[in-house]
């Protein structure tokens, strides 16, 4: 790649304290395959930052590196000025980073309520009070009900998670990461496998959460209309590398992106 166009508008004059997430030369190798290759990005606080790219571009691996599920071969991850590269995965949420998965990752044999209650309890100080019943900790139950209502699963609270329809499972997963009220949400294809008519509802919910709660959302998404309409910034990945980054209009106008990913077929409706 001869030149790598970088956004001028999006990160112009950004102060250090406005950057919530930063990666420096992040690289992950699986044997001979370089899944994530020298990725350095900056994510602005309270923005909705989308990561797009063709299949196998390394988006999910990149998310796994951010959330600490895997360790990078080299490079570092900086969250609010703090190096969290080598922290174990269970610390991630304590820093304020919530992570959802492309393949639904819930507790299938527990009820919706219990799924979210466990998430609400996690950051409290009552995890080892084994002589008290869990139902005595009303603060977690209250938080659970609040979250269940927000993601629209109120009628399903006592249903076993595995018997939920797929769309509701995606909502449950969103609920699980909302419960501890993290600052950053890493959403890996939140609409994957959802029926087309359910997608706008979920996207509106995500936007609402981001705007109302002053949260930063990082999103991997394949639905181009969604990405173009909701994002503040987009990073395009291709073969593990950053191909381009910038605002939606910059990305849509980028010839290189169009050939690599959009296949020259996508036209921006502005």
């Amino acid at each position: 790649m001869v030149h790598r166009p970088r956004s001028t508008v999006y990160l112009e004059g950004i102060m250090d304290n406005e950057i919530i997430f930063e990666t420096k030369n992040l690289t992950k190798q699986f044997g001979a395959l370089v899944a994530v290759d020298d990725v350095s990005i900056k994510v602005r606080k309270n923005s909705l930052h989308a990561i797009i790219g063709p299949n196998g571009a390394g988006k999910t691996t990149f998310f796994n590196l951010l959330s600490g599920n895997i360790e990078p071969t080299s490079g570092s991850v900086i969250f609010k000025g703090r190096d969290i590269t080598h922290q174990p995965v269970h610390r991630t949420i304590h820093y304020g980073i919530g992570r959802s998965f492309q393949i639904t990752n819930i507790f299938p044999n527990l009820t919706v309520f219990e799924n979210i209650r466990l998430a609400a309890q996690a950051l409290g100080r009552d995890n080892f009070k084994f002589w008290q019943a869990a139902s005595q900790f009303k603060q977690y139950e209250a938080r659970t009900l609040e979250v269940i209502e927000k993601v629209g699963l109120k009628d399903r609270a006592q249903t076993l998670a595995r018997t939920l329809p797929h769309g509701d499972q995606r909502k449950l997963e969103l609920g699980i990461i909302l419960a501890p009220d993290p600052e950053v949400l890493l959403l890996d294809e939140p609409t994957a496998g959802m029926a087309a008519e359910q997608v706008p509802e979920l996207i509106a919910l995500i936007q609402d959460i981001q705007k109302a709660g002053d949260k930063t959302v990082m999103l991997v998404e394949h639905n181009m209309n969604v990405v173009m309409s909701v994002s503040d910034a987009i990073t395009v990945m291709h073969m593990g590398k950053v191909l381009a980054e910038g605002t939606p209009s910059e990305i849509a106008a980028n010839k290189e992106v169009q050939t690599a990913y959009l296949g020259g077929l996508y036209e921006l409706n502005v």
Binding site: H90, R91, Q121, A122, A134, S135
Partner: peptide
């Protein structure tokens, strides 16, 4: 039925997710 036991059940169900929850 305690907070601890509920987490133990969560570990049985899906240990990876339990870790991601912060346990």
């Amino acid at each position: 039925n305690s907070p601890t036991g509920r987490v133990c059940i969560a570990i049985r169900e899906n240990e990876g997710r339990a870790q991601m929850l912060g346990y």
